Amino acid sequence: MPLNPLTLATLAALAALPAALPLPQEEMEPGYAATGRPMDDLGGPAYGDLTVFDAVTEIGAAQSADVPYCDRHGVLRTVLGQEFRERPRLKAPLEMGRSVELWASDPAGTWTALYTRADGVSCVVSSGIGWAAGDDPLARLRAEKLLPV
Rank of each mutant, 00 (worst) to 15 (best):
17 L>K: 06
54 D>C: 08
36 G>C: 08
139 A>G: 10
149 V>E: 10
79 V>L: 14
111 W>Q: 03
138 L>S: 12
70 C>Y: 07
100 V>P: 02
65 A>F: 13
63 Q>H: 09
22 P>S: 06
99 S>W: 05
137 P>I: 05
126 S>F: 03
80 L>M: 12
63 Q>T: 12
17 L>W: 04
8 L>P: 00
29 E>F: 14
149 V>N: 04
37 R>L: 09
43 G>L: 07
10 T>V: 12
42 L>R: 15
111 W>K: 01
69 Y>C: 08
39 M>C: 15
35 T>V: 04
147 L>P: 00
111 W>H: 08
77 R>Q: 14
62 A>H: 13
110 T>C: 00
96 M>V: 09
124 V>T: 06
4 N>F: 11
26 E>I: 00
77 R>L: 09
53 F>C: 08
48 G>D: 07
76 L>V: 09
21 L>C: 01
79 V>M: 12
108 A>N: 06
12 A>S: 04
129 I>K: 09
146 L>F: 05
136 D>C: 06
82 Q>V: 11
40 D>H: 12
24 P>K: 08
116 T>Y: 02
31 G>C: 07
37 R>K: 14
64 S>C: 10
127 S>G: 09
73 H>A: 15
147 L>W: 02
125 V>Q: 02
134 G>R: 12
14 L>Y: 03
29 E>W: 13
40 D>E: 15
6 L>P: 00
66 D>N: 15
